[in-house]
């Protein structure tokens, strides 16, 4: 009984995504422009890395190839999260346009409906360039092809996506319902991505500890990358930390879910 229901729920969401594709394709030109601009966006980030390495060939003990691997893992995870969950930033608009009310009167989960109804498909561009970048980095850094490494290469971006997705949801909820500001959300999501994109040895003491352990961003790209590169942590952390990502992602997703639920309970709609 439960299984076919779950399967058909998935089918409903597939249809909703397909409807969204059709909707967005009805504005063909702007769709293509958005897609292109998103590829350019990632190119610009990458350029920063290259410029840095042009100046200093080894960054805090990591070569260009090593850094690219960390960067690739982080940006693939982040862009996946942004593709699927990023639109949660539009909460304010959803309330104003009444989309949230419309979604609440339908027999489906609120969060997933909102995400699906506002999915920014143009962000597919970023995911694609993230994939290409990661593939190049894996070659350049000469990652050994072992089953364990392949597994880690698959789960790390997924863990990253879940973790960043949770951060998106949690911060957007808090920002929307309690502090009425978009800055907090941006600081944690984009700040978190920038932190994860570089070997964390480049960052200073308390800041590094806060982001890596306090907020968990170290487990998204840095520790897995160390395993893939088969090198010990210059900061002395044990290697198995690289496998802790899934636990962390599950915890983050659970916490974000709770925060979201509390937020929806406090929803007050609009007066018209």
């Amino acid at each position: 009984m439960a299984e076919p229901a779950a399967a058909s729920t998935a089918a409903i969401y597939r249809r909703l995504v397909a409807a969204q594709v059709r909707s967005q394709l009805s504005y063909r030109v702007s769709f293509v422009l958005d897609l292109v601009s998103n590829v350019v966006f990632l190119g610009a980030d990458l350029l920063t890395v290259l410029v840095v390495f042009h100046r200093v060939p080894v960054l805090a003990g990591f070569s260009l190839a090593d850094t690219l691997l960390v960067f690739g893992l982080a940006s693939l995870g982040f862009s996946l999260a942004e593709l699927i969950v990023g639109s949660i930033d539009h909460m304010q608009r959803h309330v104003r346009t009444g989309l949230l009310d419309a979604v609440l009167i339908r027999p489906l989960g609120v969060l997933w409906q909102l995400l699906v109804l506002d999915v920014g498909l143009r962000r597919v561009g970023r995911v694609c360039s993230g994939l290409v970048l990661l593939a190049i980095a894996v070659r350049l850094a000469e990652v050994a092809v072992t089953p364990a490494n392949l597994l880690l290469l698959v789960i790390t971006p997924v863990v990253g996506a879940v973790f960043f997705g949770a951060v998106f949801v949690a911060t957007a909820t808090v920002a929307f319902w309690w502090v009425d500001s978009g800055e907090l959300s941006a600081a944690l999501t984009h700040g978190g991505r920038d932190f994860t994109s570089y070997p964390m040895t480049v960052f200073g003491g308390w800041f590094r500890r806060l982001f890596a352990f306090g907020l968990g961003f170290g487990f998204i790209a840095y520790y897995p990358a160390l395993i893939l590169l088969d090198r010990p942590d210059p900061l002395g952390a044990p290697a198995w930390l690289g496998w802790c990502g899934p636990l962390l992602a599950a915890a983050a997703a659970t916490l974000a879910g709770l925060i979201w639920r509390t937020g929806v309970r406090h929803y007050r709609s609009t007066g018209s």
């Binding site: 059709r22 909707s23 419309a102 339908r106």
Partner: peptide
């Protein structure tokens, strides 16, 4: 809800009904 909509703005009206049938 009065001036709120639960239809898919960019799709033909018929498509909204089809989607709602599945929902």
């Amino acid at each position: 809800f009065g001036q709120r909509s639960q239809l898919w703005w960019d799709l033909p009206l018929r498509d909204s009904y089809e989607l709602l049938r599945h929902i």
